[in-house]
Design a protein around this nucleic acid. Structure first.
Lengths: 199, 199, 199, 199
DNA sequence: CATGAATGAGTTTTCATTCAT
DNA sequence: GATGAATGAAAACTCATTCAT
C-alpha cells in the first residue's frame, strides 16, 4: 500500500499491541507499560506517539473499525453482492456477518469491553454509534429491496441487536448453549420473518 | 422475612450504595471511599463487612439478581401466569421483561458493566451464566407448551439474546433509533415466529 | 494554645519539613517524597492531609507568615512600642526587623524562593502582596507620626524595599560586602532621612 | 566584532530563545523542547551546541550580563560621564539605572528567577556576584568623588540594594504602590543623603 | 550539521488495605 | 462496632539526554 510514515507504523503497532492486551485484561487494568511490553517498545514511546492513554484507545478504536469495514467492503465487492437478488444477497451478508463478526470470539470480547467504556466516555460512545449506524444502514439497504425503508431500518436494527445479543452469549454462555445452532436456525428463517413483516 | 443480622442489613446498604455508584462510574473507577460515602458509613467498615472490594461486587451481584428474581416471581404468582393459556402467558411475560428489564435503563447500564467484568472474572461470569440460565429456562417453559423442549430452549435463548441486544441499543443508540417501536413490533410477532418455527 | 486536631499537628509538621527542605533545594526540585522523608512520615500521608503539592506550599506560606507576624506582634506588645516616642519606636522596630527578618539568612533564602514562585503563581503572589502590605502599613503607622500619611507610606515602602534588597545581598554577597555595617549605618541615619523628607 | 562562528550565532539564538521562554515560565519548567521551539531549531541541536540544559543557562547568563554591560558602557561613553561633575554624573547614572534596569519589568522578572537559581547553584551565584560587584564598583567610583572609598562602597551597595528592592516591588506590587513615584522621590534626594553621610 | 526516534529515571497522585484507638 | 490515620504498591505522564540515520 505504498509508504507509510514511521509514526503511522508505530501507532498501528501500538494499536495491535493493545488489541492483544485487551484479550487478557480490561482496558482499565491494562497499563501503559503492559501495552509497551506487548508492542516490544519502551513505555516512553507510547507517550511520544500518543498524548495519553485515552488517545491510544481512540486510535485503536478507529483502527479496529477501519479494518472490519475494509474487510467487509472488499468481500462485498469481490462477491458482487450489489448485483445479486434479494434472497442471495441477504443470505450471503448474514453469513459473512455471523461468521466474521458475531462468532469471532476475539472481536466479541473486544466489543463487550468497548460497550462498557462507551457507557462513561462520550467520544467512545460516538464512535460506537457510528459503527452501529453504518452496520444497520448497510443491512437496511438489502432488506429495503423487499420492504419499505422504515420497516427495513427497523428490521435491520432488530437483526443486528439479535446478533449482538448472540455475540454476547457466545462469550458468556460458551459451551452451555448451542450458539451456532441458534444462529443457523435463524439465518434460515430471517428471510421468512422479513417477508412476513411486510404484511 | 423475620430478623436479619446487623451485618446483613449493612451489607445490603453497601450493595445499594454500590448500585448508585455504578450509575455514575465504572466499577474500576469506583473507590471504596465512594461506596462508603454513598452508603453513609466509614470506609473502614467496608472491610469489616467484606474481605475486599471484589467481595462487595460479588455480594452486590447476588443482591441485584435476587431482587430481580423475587420481583419477577412475585409478579408471576400474582398474575397466575402458570394457569394462563400459551398466548396470554407469552404476551404477559414478554411485556414484563421488556418493560422491567430490557428498557430499564439503569439495569441496562448495570448489565453492560457486569458483562465487561465477567469477561475477565470467572466468579462474576458464573453468576451471570446462572442468571441467563434461569431466565432462558423460565421463558422456555412457556414456549415449551407449544413446541418441543429443544426448540423451545433455542427460541428462548434467541429471544433473550435479542432483548439483550435491544437493551444494549437502548443505551448506546438512545434517541437515534426507535427502540420502543422495534420492541413493540417484535412483541406482536414473536408468537407467530414461534409457531412458524414449529414447522 | 490548648488542643489542636491531629490534622493540624500533621499539617504543621509537614510545613516544618518543607521549610527544612527549602533550605536545601528549590521547591520545584523538592519532591513529595523529600518532604515526607524530612517529616518522617509516609509520602502517602502528604496526600492524605493535602490535596496536592501546591496545597502544601500554600499552607506552608500561611504558616510562615503567621509565625513571623505573631512573633512580631508579641514582641511589639511586650515592648509597648505603641506608647513610645517616635525616635524610640522607629529605632526599636527597625532593629527588630533587621535582626529578625532581614538578616535571618534562612528566612532570606526562603523569601527569594517565594519571590520566584510568586512570579508565575497568582495565589502565591497574592499572599506575598498581603505580607508586604501589612509590613509597609505597620512601618507607615510609626513614620506617620512625624509626617503626612502619603509620604509615610512612600518612605515605608522605600525602607522595606531597601531592607529586602539588603536581605538579598546578605545571601548573594555574603562575605563579600559588610552587610551588617551597611545596615547599621542606615539604621542610624534613617531617622534623619525621614525628617529630611518632611521638608 | 567581525566574524563569529556559526556555533556562536546559534548559541546566541538559543540564549535569546531562553530569554523569551523565561518571561513565560520558570527555568525549571522550561523544557529543552520549549527553548528549541522558541529558537526555531531542532531540540537535538541544543545538545550539539551545549552539553546540558544547565550549560544553556550559564551561557545565557553571560549573554544577558554582557548585553547589559555593553549597553551601559556605550551609553556611559556617549554621554562622557567620566568628565561630568559629581552631581550631574550621579543624576545621569541613577536615571539610566532606574529606567533601563530597575523598572525594566522583563529584566526584573528575569533577575528574580536568577536570584532563585543562584540560591542553590554555585556557578550561577558566582556570575551574579560578579554582576553586583561590577555594578557597585561602578557607582562607587562616582560617589567616591565626594567621599572616601569605604563610605562610597557602602553607599553604592546600599543604593543598589534599594534599587533591587524596588525592582522586586515593581513586579510584586505593581499597581498597588506608586513604584515610579518612590523612585523619583529618592533619585532627587540621594545626592543629599550621600552628602549628609559624609559628616 | 540536522532530525526525531528512543530511552529510562523520576515525579505526582491514587487507592485498597490494615490497624491502633 | 466505628473511625480515620497510615502504608506502600502501582499508575500515568514528563523530560533531559543519547544516537542512528
Amino acid at each position: 500500500m505504498g509508504r507509510r510514515s514511521l509514526k503511522n507504523i508505530r501507532q498501528e503497532e501500538i494499536a495491535r499491541a493493545l488489541y492483544r492486551c485487551l484479550l487478557k485484561k480490561p482496558f482499565s487494568k491494562t497499563t501503559i507499560k503492559d501495552i509497551a511490553k506487548e508492542a516490544g517498545v519502551n513505555h516512553g514511546m507510547l507517550h511520544y506517539y500518543f498524548k495519553s492513554k485515552e488517545e491510544i484507545l481512540l486510535y485503536f478504536l478507529d483502527w479496529v473499525v477501519a479494518i472490519q469495514l475494509s474487510g467487509f467492503r472488499q468481500w462485498y465487492k469481490s462477491r458482487h453482492v450489489d448485483n445479486l437478488p434479494f434472497e442471495k444477497a441477504l443470505t450471503l451478508v448474514l453469513n459473512y456477518t455471523t461468521k466474521k463478526i458475531t462468532l469471532n470470539e476475539d472481536l466479541a470480547k473486544l466489543f463487550i469491553e468497548i460497550w462498557e467504556i462507551a457507557l462513561y466516555n462520550k467520544t467512545v460512545k460516538k464512535k460506537l454509534q457510528y459503527v452501529y449506524h453504518a452496520w444497520i444502514d448497510q443491512l437496511a439497504i438489502i432488506i429495503g429491496k423487499e420492504t419499505n425503508e422504515k420497516i427495513a431500518n427497523l428490521l435491520s436494527a432488530a437483526t443486528i441487536a439479535f446478533l449482538e445479543g448472540m455475540s454476547l452469549f457466545s462469550i458468556m454462555l460458551r459451551g452451555k448453549y448451542p450458539i451456532n445452532t441458534i444462529i443457523d436456525y435463524f439465518e434460515k428463517r430471517i428471510e421468512t420473518i422479513i417477508k412476513m413483516n411486510i404484511m
